[in-house]
Simulated scan of single mutants.
Amino acid sequence: MPDSLYAQALRDVLQRLSSAAAASGRPRPRLLAVSKTQPATAVAEMAAALHAMNVTAVAPAPAFGENYVQEALAKQEALASETLEWHLIGHLQSNKAREAATAFDWVQTVDRDKLVAALARHRPDDRPPLNVLVQVNIDDEASKHGCAPGEVPALAAAIAAQPRLLLRGLMAIPAPHPDVAHRRDAFARMKALFDALAGQYPQIDTLSMGMSDDIELAVAEGATMVRVGTALFGARQRAQDS
């Protein structure tokens, strides 16, 4: 199959993941292609490249991350003939919970009890339970969403108690600190939280952390999923309204 527009970028990212996994002695994490602000045509082309490189052999379908519910809904409608897995990775407002619970396969940004109840109430009975990650504000940044590390156990318990939700693990966006050791420490603290939680809930298998600029650090500290946008699609296009 001839290279698509994104094939070489995908190849480069997969090589980075493989090299980082080999260097750290850890399994290669799952790749989530962050498609926010990218057009549906780009998503379709990236999905084809993922299939061509057999990346989907160990996953249900090509997985794409979106920040905004309305933007994602438009892409899902345009790509209705494709079998894709959709992850919400942006902050979720309570008034969008019904749409998110219906349209997405994963919500990675659950950070408060109110969202847990809303997502569980609106998840359709004819769909599998919604995969959920607890978002942790690991560096206590005022500009970022996410619960405090100490709030993780209670929030996880609330999610696990909902039959229409499936607790899968944790997600974080550590501060882009210029000191590599500082960033590595944030990833390590997330891994410790993840390991403690996994000891309580056997279904937990996902630690979503690491983006285009820090894939290697995240993999070294135990990420099982990385969220990559710029390295795959290039610079972002103009953001859509949420």
Rank of each mutant, 00 (worst) to 15 (best):
G199L: 13
L170A: 02
V152L: 03
L197Q: 12
A161I: 07
A181F: 05
Q200A: 14
L197H: 05
R184Y: 04
P163Q: 15
L167R: 06
Y201R: 04
A196V: 10
L155H: 04
V152R: 00
R189S: 07
L165G: 02
Q203Y: 05
L193K: 01
R164W: 12
G199D: 14
D205S: 14
P174L: 01
F194Y: 15
A157M: 10
F187T: 04
L167A: 05
V180G: 00
E151K: 03
G150Y: 05
E151G: 04
D195E: 15
R189V: 06
Q200G: 07
L155K: 02
V152Q: 00
R164G: 04
I173D: 00
Q203H: 12
A175G: 01
R183G: 02
Q162S: 12
A196E: 14
L155A: 05
A196K: 09
D179K: 11
P176S: 08
L165Y: 03
A157N: 09
E151P: 02
I204K: 08
P149T: 09
I173P: 04
A157D: 14
R183D: 01
F194P: 06
A172F: 05
A157E: 15
A198G: 10
I159C: 07
G169W: 01
H177S: 09
P163N: 15
G199M: 13
R164H: 15
A175H: 06
G169E: 05
R164S: 15
L197Y: 07
D195R: 13
A172S: 14
A158G: 11
A181D: 13
H182S: 12
K191N: 13
V180L: 11
R164P: 06
D195I: 12
Q203R: 12
L167Q: 05
I204T: 14
P178Y: 01
L165F: 02
K191P: 00
A158K: 14
V152C: 00
P149V: 06
K191D: 10
A160Y: 08
K191R: 15
L170Y: 01
R184K: 11
Q200V: 14
A154N: 06
L170K: 05
L165P: 00
H182W: 13
G169F: 01
A196Y: 03
I204G: 05
D205A: 14
D195M: 12
M190K: 10
I173M: 15
G150Q: 14
R164E: 09
M171E: 08
I159H: 08
I173A: 04
I204L: 14
R184A: 13
Y201C: 08
Y201I: 07
D205C: 11
F187L: 10
M171L: 12
A186G: 08
R184Q: 13
R183K: 07
L166Y: 02
A157L: 11
A186R: 06
G199S: 13
A154Y: 04
A181K: 10
A158C: 12
K191G: 00
A188V: 07
A175M: 04
L166N: 06
P163M: 15
A181R: 11
A198L: 08
R168E: 10
I204N: 07
R189K: 14
P178E: 02
